[in-house]
Design a protein around this nucleic acid. Structure first.
Lengths: 119, 119
DNA sequence: ATAAGGTCTGACAGCGCTGTAAGAGTCAAG
DNA sequence: CTTGACTCTTACAGCGCTGTCAGACCTTAT
């Protein structure tokens, strides 16, 4: 699959797909022409990247976790060293969720205040 | 209250407090010396800014909402024009919360996978 | 073979936010 | 009055991400 196809399928811009590679998150095959050739494995990875990125995780951090999401992950992947980081990240995400909910509450308060004041 | 005091009380860096002013979010009094002089009203605003900022709202956007959070808000404040934006923002925040929860779930899956694989 | 559209690399620029530094002035305690 | 801590403005720089552009090459269909 060429980069444009993957971009269309994932909604991630071509620019960013190349950036992912630059940051070590993806390493697609190359054709003789130099064109990147993505497989279903890479498409799967992009999905993970999107989700993890949405949690505020930075790309280098995501790069650390990505090998652990592989089905056929080689056993020597140092995933066990990531458990602490992982736990921290879960906590951080939880904190962010709470902040967002607090923010949402505030917004809703402002909204209902406004509606009451104006109507 | 001087800027250092407000910084300590809110946990927002001096740099950022000045930046808030630059962006029109705060307009503290000035002493003859030129020193900024913050009142309790400004401290309250900083709290809102922090919360709204945590929802991913950008400072210029926050600047629009801030007048609507004032207790003694002048009636001519065009807050009614913000209702749509506000509703959009609430929706967006909701979406972000969901994304974060999805991300958290993924992280937890990775974590339990790892624990099972390793132990 | 030609044309249109896809892709390559490399570079530059912008966003929003944040820190830091320099050089000058202010404040408060001794 | 001196000294150390604080504040002022201005400016530069970095982060992580993202877009865009240029110039060259590849691919596919006609």
């Amino acid at each position: 699959m060429k980069i444009g196809d993957l971009s269309r399928r994932t909604g991630v811009s071509i620019r960013m797909l190349r950036y992912y590679e630059e940051e070590g998150l993806l390493t697609p095959q190359r054709r003789d022409s130099g064109y990147r050739d993505y497989g279903p494995q890479e498409e799967e990875s992009v999905k993970f990247i999107k989700i993890l990125g949405a949690t505020g995780m930075t790309l280098p951090t995501i790069a650390k976790f990505l090998p652990c999401t592989l089905k056929d992950r080689p056993s020597f992947e140092p995933c066990h060293e990531l458990i602490d980081t992982l736990q921290d990240q879960i906590e951080a995400t939880d904190g962010n969720i709470n902040k967002l909910m607090e923010g949402k509450k505030l917004l809703e308060n402002i909204l209902s205040d406004l509606k009451r004041t104006i109507k």
